[in-house]
Amino acid sequence: MRRLSRAGRDALTDLWLAGPATVMMIVLIFVPVAIVALLSFTDYQFGARSFRFVGLENYTTLFTDPIGRRAVTNTLLYVAVVIPFSMGLALLVAMALHEMATWSRMLSNVLRAAYFLPVAATLVAMALAWQMLLHPSIGLFNAVLSHLGFPRQDLLSDRGLVLYTLAAIGIWQTIGYNMVLFLAGLAAIPRHLYEAAEVDGADRPWERFWTVTWPMLGPTTLFVAVITATQSFRVFETVATLTDGGPAFASETLVYALYREGFVYFKAGYASAITMVFFAFVLALTLLQFRILERRVHYK
């Protein structure tokens, strides 16, 4: 057998090491993205024998059809509610736990674990737990409400409230994650900055917050905001488990619409257009995130 040259053997080795992953990456990510982009301009239906190009029709439908518009506006509203609350609460908790660690590291760690628990927990199962908690007749929430003399609320069937209820679950689920990021940011602030601020006369806690903590947390905050946004844009599990987008499309979101139009109604073309709109939102946010990261992480 003829022996390959060293350069030839090296090339084969490179192919053997990086080839499989590259091929799978192309087949499973880049080709599908191209196909979905293409499909979004067609009227293709799963199982259909043919399709035709319809230009931007799917996109105009999405933005003119009341239901399609609901999906877009609901998602934006959901994100707009989750971001400030999840981040604000996470920051408060992180600062409290950061301070607590100076006098009781153990209690601080235990609470940290408690807040982080929803991040690791199976969201579908926890959504059902929330459903039980909020149940109009047998849920703890309404028992307490009626005990206090308020009328019972069916938070998951009320058109006006359902999206906020889902957002509340979303906030509950993301606080722990953001708290961990904020804690890391707080730990990175050098202690001597606080001492310097104190020397300079910033002796009230909120003064120190505005002179040191907030400016130093700036990059972290931006990073957390983008991550929370990209995660919230994908809201699906709670919708699929608890509301199916209802009642009357009051909790319809982009990913749920993509799922229903594509895989329940088999409108592949239309679902592809929804996908592309969803992708555009996430892409814009993630590119923003990379630009922030580039300033913090040094790529070799």
């Binding site: 490179d14 880049f30 599908p32 594509g262 996908t275 992708f279």
Partner: peptide
């Protein structure tokens, strides 16, 4: 390893990070 497509492959990895798996679901 030093191979010619290295930058391209790493570029693909970075680009791939931008794609949520929901996007590829239909194809």
């Amino acid at each position: 390893r030093r191979f010619r497509a290295r930058t391209l492959v790493f570029g693909m990895v970075l680009a791939g990070l931008l794609v949520p798996y929901h996007v590829t679901a239909i194809p």
